[in-house]
Amino acid sequence: MHELSIAQSLLALIEDEMAKHDNKRLVTVKVKHGRLSAVVPEALAMAFEVMTTDTRLAGAQLVMEESPVVLRCRTCGREFSPESPSAAFAPCPGCGEELGHTVLSGRELYIEYLELE
């Protein structure tokens, strides 16, 4: 349940960004999380809701989007997105290489934008 810490960090960033924009009301915050990042969206949504209740962020919407894992094969250089949910065992569809793929994306966890009014 590290989603509580993540929600805490998320709220601190939101407050920081709101202060830069005349503290307008937060309508939506959009978060992108890679499939390899260890985030359970439902748990983060729950933590966000609990922690914003009775604050000035109450009612704001947390929108999450999962970004796929993209790997580059170390042997033939092909870029691919493994279909297996774990991505831990993903032979290259081009040459069959199983080991040593470079992770191009899928680990990210960031705020993409805030919607204020």
Binding site: S9, L13, I111, E115
Partner: peptide, 12 residues
């Protein structure tokens, strides 16, 4: 209005 942020949530 939409404010692009692009900040790592765990940056602290």
């Amino acid at each position: 209005m939409q404010i692009p942020v692009v900040r790592n949530i765990l940056e602290a």
